[in-house]
């Protein structure tokens, strides 16, 4: 991967982007156990696969989602969070 498609700004070199880690659902802090919260804070799913990840386009300040195969380093698609149906 050398180029990445920002859903707003188009295809750009990777140097314009910052990786924001895997997209994860937050458990409800009011109802979850301490153990669940600690797992959310610290644990990650580290095995390879097609993952939903946060990426950030620096010059425009755009956060978006990339679905990427972390083994082949190939991006399947990118979209703004919550707008994946539109794509």
């Amino acid at each position: 991967m050398k180029l990445l498609q920002c859903p707003i700004n188009g295809i750009r070199p990777l140097s314009e982007f910052t990786y924001g880690g895997e997209y994860r659902d937050m458990p409800n802090p009011d109802t979850c156990s301490d153990k669940e919260w600690a797992a959310y804070v610290h644990y990650r799913h580290g095995a390879p696969g097609v993952k939903k990840e946060w990426w950030y386009h620096g010059p425009s300040g755009t956060w978006f989602i990339a679905e990427r195969d972390t083994m082949a380093d190939k991006v399947v698609r990118t979209y703004i969070a919550g707008q994946e149906e539109a794509k």
Binding site: N9, R12, P13, S15, E16, H57, G58, P59, S60
Partner: peptide, 12 residues
């Protein structure tokens, strides 16, 4: 209008 990186600096 384009937002990109010029000489390593984010620019419009």
């Amino acid at each position: 209008l384009v937002m990109t990186v010029i000489a390593g600096v984010s620019a419009t």
